[in-house]
């Protein structure tokens, strides 16, 4: 279980995350939602040790994260950044193999169990046939699934994702998030995922954390947390929330831009 207590992170001179405390339940898909610049991505990067925490600490199964080495952290937590560089001429198979870096040894190829893991990750995202293809010849949706396969092949129990469905069309958004939700249900992974779309959140996430100005505005199971009131408080706009055949639908009302 990942537990944050009083975490503050600054990015440059700005304090982006202010005294955040939260417990992320195991085996659940938690969506991190909030306006642009509210500190969601910063929080994930700090959890990965890519940014220093000003204050507070994160504990993973009661072990402080900052005390873990990079490699041992990588064995337990995988991270998908928002923007991934896609180098020319690198193949999907090579990309997947790189995920096992934290278990790799100098001058030695991947172990048999790692190879099984790579195949399985490619199979899960439906790209096993494409392993020999250079990454830049894949479509946008396939590429996003490739990055997810890389995260899967890292074989960590906790997966952090920063807007994994950015730039994807609506069909791909649903198929990618469906895949992510399946990881929690079928494989017991814990997923913390930055999302922008409240309807996607309501369709796939189990829990939601609403953030605003570096603070948690509301957190809990989706059904109780995604309310008209909370949406207004988080985004500063009116919204209607309905229940349609057991699914939450969020209908925001257009507002004039007010600073």
């Amino acid at each position: 279980m990942l537990e944050l207590s009083n975490v503050s992170v600054s990015y440059g001179k700005n304090l982006c995350v202010r005294k955040v405390s939260h417990r992320f339940a195991n085996g659940r898909f938690t969506a991190l939602v909030g306006p642009n610049g509210c500190g969601k991505s910063t929080l994930l990067r700090a959890l990965m040790g890519l940014l220093p925490m000003q204050q507070g600490e994160a504990r993973l199964d009661d072990q402080p994260v900052h005390a873990m080495g990079r490699r041992s952290l990588a064995r337990r937590v995988a991270y998908l950044p928002q923007d991934n560089h896609c180098p020319d001429y690198i193949t999907l198979g090579e990309l997947i193999e790189l995920s096992a870096f934290s278990r790799s040894r100098l001058m030695r190829g991947p172990s048999a169990s790692d190879q099984a893991l790579f195949r399985d990750a490619l199979q899960t995202v439906g790209l096993l046939d494409m392993a020999h293809r250079p990454l830049n010849t894949l479509s946008g949706g396939q590429r996003q699934r490739a990055w997810i396969a890389m995260v899967l092949a890292q074989d960590a129990d906790l997966i952090l994702m920063d807007e994994p469905v950015n730039h994807l069309d609506v069909a791909y958004q649903y198929s990618v998030l469906n895949l992510v939700a399946r990881l929690t249900r079928q494989r017991g992974k814990t997923v913390i995922c930055v999302l922008h779309d409240l309807n996607l959140t309501a369709s796939f996430a189990d829990e939601v954390v609403l953030m605003r100005d570096g603070r948690i505005e509301a957190a809990g199971p989706v059904r109780e947390t995604v309310t008209a009131d909370n949406v207004t408080r988080t985004f500063g706009m009116e919204a209607e929330i309905f229940d349609r055949n057991g699914r939450l639908v969020c209908l925001p009302h257009a507002t004039e831009f007010s600073a």
Partner: peptide, 23 residues
Amino acid sequence: LALSRHLNLILLGSDKAGSTGVN
């Protein structure tokens, strides 16, 4: 050559490399 795997990961971006265990 000994750093080639680290360098491959850095090719994907420093956040990706850092989160995979590269210093």
